[in-house]
Amino acid sequence: MAMLEVEELTMRFGGLKALDGLSFAVEEGRIVGLIGPNGAGKTTVFNLISRFYQPVGGRISFQGKDLLRLKPHQVLQLGIARTFQNLGLFPYMTVLDNLLVGRHIHFRTSSWALALGLGQREERAFRAEAEQLLERLGLAPLKGAVVGFLPYGTQKFIELARALMARAKLLLLDEPVAGMNAAETQMMGQFIKRVRDEYGLTVLLVEHDMSLVMGICERVVVLDFGRKIAEGTPEEVQHNPAVIEAYLGEEVEVA
């Protein structure tokens, strides 16, 4: 059984059909790309998985559990973390505090105890872990910096690091390299692969940058007008006539 299964998912905004009977599956351990022209419904899929939207029809299950019965804040407890297209960082917090919010659900100390100043050991342990993670990213000197003042590309890495702090099994990355230059894109690609291997993660990513998708994805699902028009390895998808047609008029950059 696949880790994430999306079946016949349908979503409407007003009269507009954003998703139309979409089905696909993500196997454990894979890096899967979700691509398609603008407005194809990619982010809508993420927001449905995050439970921000309620679908008109269809099912989403994660490791056999029905996702649609959950509230947005319960999704991570199953093991699904995500990043956001326009950054979901907390701009006035320091880098370290942002990472610690990633650990939020793993704190065992109760709020009452925290208010009394207890639970310092747990806090210190998680803090040390966050610092280690930053060290590995080469971002250790920034741990006390306020996130909102950092360069966009750096913030993207920090957001991903925060998702790693959540100890999730599945990462949903919404345009992880949007606004990055070629060098940064390559770094991010390598980083995603590395953390997938080291942490044993599964990754589902939405991306416009074809060099990243073709470079790291093992499977690609192509959407157009809310429907799946192709699925396969990057090579297969690249030569699929339906895909080429959908992207006609948009420049397809293939690395």
């Binding site: 947005p72 804040h73 991570l76 956001f84 907390f90 917090m93 990633g102 939020h104 659900i105």
Partner: peptide, 15 residues
């Protein structure tokens, strides 16, 4: 603070 600055992201992080 997470709720104040990014309600959606806060929820996605389990808050």
């Amino acid at each position: 603070v997470a709720i104040r600055d990014q309600e959606r992201a806060a929820q996605a992080l389990g808050i």
